[in-house]
């Protein structure tokens, strides 16, 4: 259902820099449509990043995060070829998981 993420993971020295672009409406629940009706909130709530199955980042997101969000973070202990996996879950229960190898 949801569109794929764009993930880049590069090893720089002893840290892996991960950059993720996610495609999501991130509707706040504060806006109204042309007819004056409130547009229901629809946003990513949980983001998890794992490296070879081990969680390296876990975040709870809210409506303050922009549409089509960009996330960048660094972690230590990764090596070239490791599988970095990102998963998000939104408040409607929709999920998306994408994976990339560290380069």
């Amino acid at each position: 259902m949801a569109d794929p993420m764009k993930i880049r993971a590069t090893l720089q020295g002893d840290t892996v820099e991960v950059r993720v672009l996610m495609q999501h409406e991130m509707e706040t629940g504060q806006r109204k449509d042309a007819a004056g009706k409130t547009i229901p909130a629809w946003h990513i709530q949980q983001v998890t990043a794992t490296n070879n199955g081990k969680t390296v980042l876990s975040a709870q997101w809210g409506p303050a995060v922009s549409k089509n969000p960009f996330l960048s973070f660094k972690f230590k202990g990764g090596a070239k070829g490791d599988k970095v996996q990102i998963t998000w879950t939104d408040n409607k229960g929709d999920k998306r998981t994408d994976e990339v190898a560290v380069s």
Binding site: K6, R19, Q23, N68, F70, S72
Partner: peptide, 14 residues
């Protein structure tokens, strides 16, 4: 600041 994570790349992929 935003250049690094330009969401245009999502459109490019699609």
């Amino acid at each position: 600041l935003l250049q690094d994570g330009n969401p245009a790349e999502l459109w490019e992929m699609r």
